[in-house]
Design a protein around this nucleic acid. Structure first.
Lengths: 205, 205
DNA sequence: GTCTATAGCTGGATAGAC
DNA sequence: GTCTATCCAGCTATAGAC
């Protein structure tokens, strides 16, 4: 490690500020000057450590994206009883998004502007294998009669919708209803419980 | 009307192209030169007819936004039997979004970058009055025992999530599953029916 | 490793000829 | 109403002194 202590500080500060700004404003909404100023460095540092703005962005993006997928896949593949698994799944989404509420819109924006790169990222995670595991589980439960006949895709899409959308919608809802972020968090905590009941009730035969 | 025929053609062509480009790429993702080139005009026209890029964008945005709210509010306030109303509501969302699949992400992006303007737009629609009408309806049905005890906000948020999210997610899903837009439309048509059943099953006492 | 100064480009907007 | 030429502010990236 030939870097001085100050060097790694600068690098870390740039990363820290970039995470905040990129996630908040997207790639086009942030300039290298913004990052340099907010991190108390200068644009030359940014290019010295990260080669280009785009390169830095990719680092931040992959980080955010991997946070989203890793934790969720772990839950879905567990061997808990089905309704427990669903509950854990929803809990995991809400806990994750409480921690990083801006990530969904950040990722969705990227989907819209540069889908190819994202598809590559996802495919690294072997989505087909993981899908097969979940689909097998759903079929098994349908046969056992634990749940109504259900397509895995439809069910999965519903759970993901119910978990992610409230966070995308949050900033807007807060403004219209004129409540603070902390108050909206409380709404979401309650809503999480409602979603768990909602999905459970919809699935029970 | 002192404008020549050609003049209104130019204006209309700029509007047409702007709709496409802004909805697809967002405000920052489109330059006035892009619009001028794609509409076969020039940047001077753009400023002559619309004063500024921002002005033009506002026009397009309000248009897109009003499409979304008007139709939906009309349904929710109808006096159909409750489960019919829910079915119509979900149908209305899906029909609308099949027609304008890019609008949700467009609007959600604006929420993230300029929430104040949007809040003003929404408040023009008297959201509190409309909310009160729906809330009254839900309470009435709970008392009658038609549906489970349910908070209006939670139910509303779930329906909106289940309708809008699949469209936001669409572009991404298409790439990962490697299917065309037409194939994804078919998936969504099926999913709509699933969502109607899902919500109904979740609400039945 | 650090930082200033600047090159080189692209953005929105406009002056002024027609 | 139309269009060219141009202004100037903003951007990313880098050369080069320290």
């Amino acid at each position: 490690m030939l870097e001085t202590q100050s060097a790694s500080n600068v690098k870390e500060r740039i990363l820290q500020v970039s995470r905040e700004l990129f996630v908040k404003n997207g790639y086009n909404g942030v300039s290298v000057r913004d990052i340099a100023t907010a991190s108390g460095t200068n644009v030359a540092h940014l290019n010295y450590y990260f080669q280009s703005k785009y390169n830095l962005f990719e680092l931040i993006f992959e980080e955010a994206f991997n946070i989203m997928v890793k934790r969720i896949f772990a839950i879905i593949q567990s061997d808990k009883p089905f309704f427990d698994m669903i509950e854990c799944w929803i809990n995991a989404y809400y806990d994750l998004l409480m921690e990083y509420p801006q990530i969904p819109l950040f990722v969705l924006n990227e989907i819209n502007q540069n889908p190819d790169r994202l598809v590559r990222l996802v495919q690294k995670q072997d989505p087909h294998d993981k899908y097969a595991i979940i689909a097998g589980r759903v079929e098994e439960e349908v046969k056992k009669g634990t749940i109504k006949a259900t397509s895995t895709i439809d069910l999965g899409l519903n759970v993901v919708s119910l978990c992610i959308f409230p966070f995308i919608f949050g900033k807007f809802a807060m403004r219209v209803a004129d409540i603070s972020f902390d108050e909206y968090r409380k709404v979401l905590e309650q809503h999480k419980l409602y979603v768990i009941r909602f999905v459970t009730d919809a699935l029970k035969p």
